[in-house]
Simulated scan of single mutants.
Amino acid sequence: MERTLAEFIAYLHTTKNTSNNTEISYQRDLKKLIRYLDGQNIHDFAEVTSLDLKGYLSELKSENLASSTISRNIASIRALFQYLFKEGRVTADPSEELKPPKVEKKMPEILSVQEVDRLLKQPNINTAKGLRDSAMLELLYATGMRVSELIHLQVSDLNLQFGYVICHDTDKERIIPIGNVSKRALAEYMEHGRDYFVKNKNEKSLFTNCSGRSMSRQGFWKVLKGYAEAAGIYRDITPHTLRHSFAVHMLQNGADIKSVQEMLGHSDISSTQIYLGMNVAKMRDVYMKAHPRH
């Protein structure tokens, strides 16, 4: 079964163009399933029945896992068996009857404009590290891009002359405008900061760590945490918090939801509509323009 799992992950990567994080998630979930099946003396996916899978879900529920975690496990199992059925490795799909539990949608954590302003003022722009960190934070808030998209940006994706960045999302790309504050921060970083880290002239990554290699998610998360504490923001914020805050602040200032959807890269507008219920009109008269730092 381990070999079949490896073949499934390879299929996701080469045929479905899934992200590394998605593949890691599938692998983790399905390895746990395999351990359970081994304990039930089942060593071939072709032997698995819907009753076996329901027994596995009962065990997951007994662990008091979150509904979202159980739903993700079900999605992983269904994807695997759909692949096996399509490949003719199983004669029937035992996962068809699995139904995910209802997941209560939580409202995302949002920073106020004042909190964002304090956060973005924390980097010491008299240092190369501060210039890099300021450019990253300003760009993340200016565009609402995902942190995975931010750290995979290349120098060629940035166009300071016309004020936009090309953002890559799996097999798609989108062009997002950047405002003057972010544009200035990026220009300062490119002129006075990046060469401090990057010694290899062939390095294409826009943002690197202190060793001159591409910045990691964990590396940026630590950077953000440090500045959040320095700004007196003690909530559990993540890079995605700036993405959520970008969306809400744009809508609060009159940006239309379709434009925000396109900037965020949401394929379904329903994913963007969650922000509409978050006091959209409350601060409309506070700002002069659609984005508070433009």
Score class of each variant (00 low, 15 high):
Thr4Trp: 01
Leu12Thr: 13
Asn17Ser: 13
Ser25Asp: 14
Tyr26Ser: 08
Lys31Glu: 15
Ile34Ala: 13
His43Arg: 12
Phe45Gln: 07
Thr49Asn: 09
Gly55Trp: 07
Ser58Asn: 14
Ser62Lys: 15
Ala75Glu: 01
Leu80Pro: 01
Tyr83His: 15
Asp93Leu: 02
Pro94Phe: 06
Val103Gln: 11
Glu104Leu: 08
Lys105Ala: 11
Met107Leu: 15
Ile110Phe: 04
Gln114Asp: 13
Asp117Gln: 14
Arg118Pro: 04
Arg118Asn: 09
Asn124Gln: 09
Ile125Glu: 13
Ala128Gln: 04
Ser134Gln: 10
Leu137Asn: 05
Leu140Ser: 03
Tyr141Thr: 08
Ala142Lys: 08
Val147Ile: 15
Leu153Lys: 01
Gln154Lys: 12
Leu160Lys: 09
Gln161Val: 10
Thr170Ala: 14
Lys172Phe: 09
Lys172Gln: 12
Glu173Asn: 05
Arg174Val: 15
Ile175Asn: 02
Ile175Leu: 13
Asn180Trp: 01
Val181Leu: 11
Val181Phe: 12
Leu186Glu: 02
Glu188Asp: 14
Tyr189Gly: 09
Met190Pro: 04
Arg194Leu: 09
Arg194Met: 09
Tyr196Leu: 03
Thr208Phe: 08
Phe220Gln: 07
Trp221Thr: 11
Val223Pro: 06
Val223Glu: 08
Leu224Asp: 08
Ala230Gly: 01
Arg235Thr: 06
Arg235Val: 02
Ile237Thr: 05
Leu242Ala: 04
Ser245Thr: 14
Phe246Ala: 10
Met250Asn: 08
Met250Ile: 05
Gly254Met: 11
Val260Thr: 03
His266Ile: 01
His266Thr: 02
Asp268Met: 02
Leu276Val: 07
Asn279Trp: 02
Val280Asn: 10
Val280Glu: 11
Met288Lys: 12
His291Glu: 08
His291Thr: 07
